[in-house]
Amino acid sequence: MTGRRLSERVIADGVVVAAIAGWWLMSLRLPAFLMPSPLQVAEKVAALFVTPSLLADTAASAARVVVAVVVSAVLGGALALIPYRWPVTEAIVRDRITPFLNSFPSVGWAILAMIWFGTTNAAVLFVEIAILTPFCLINLLEGLKELDGELIEMGASFTRRRGRSFWKIVVPMLLPYVLSAIRIAYGVAWKIALIAELFGVSSGLGYLMLKAQIVSDAAMVYATCFAIVLLFLAGEKLVIDPLSRLVAYK
């Protein structure tokens, strides 16, 4: 078993090493504006986290992602709770708002936001929130559907105050879904942050990427992509995973 696990590891890391080696070999033959070497890109990635002016862009993107995820989780939660409280609105949320937001193309939001709000921070946030909200909404609607009806009945038999049974029973049962909504939204957020920033503003990783692409600075285009992968993984491992362990433990 350990032997097999070892060979599994060797192959997995071998794939990574081979990919980097292949990349390096290609970079020797191709011009740097087409295929920069892994080392050049690594330097740029490091610069994104160290050089103050670049770090400001990285931090701007990260801050927007965090704000957008939190706002869309709240917004998605509010939208999901409306039909829970007033069943008559079920079709409005399920058959109108959800499919509309869910099939609205993200590029469409980006272009419209640019026309409506100009190239501002608000435009980028608007785009990110508009794209993330349906992900949270779908997850929380699902969560509310799965709630244990018997527990809620029991709660109702203990107290007549709806607010009390909501906070003590519905919210704790809903927490795992809130967290999985945040997890999904967070994953999507980093990917669409670039789209939002390509049009929207003059700061952030998306802006750096577009600027680099225009001047054919391929190393920087690669570096912004990798920086996003790193930031995404860091956030997931350092924030989302501990949070979901906390919720699961309860």
Partner: peptide, 14 residues
């Protein structure tokens, strides 16, 4: 975890 726009811009370069 790699962004779609990243792939697009890279493949434009390539």
């Amino acid at each position: 975890s790699f962004s779609g726009i990243g792939w697009t811009l890279l493949s434009i370069v390539w």
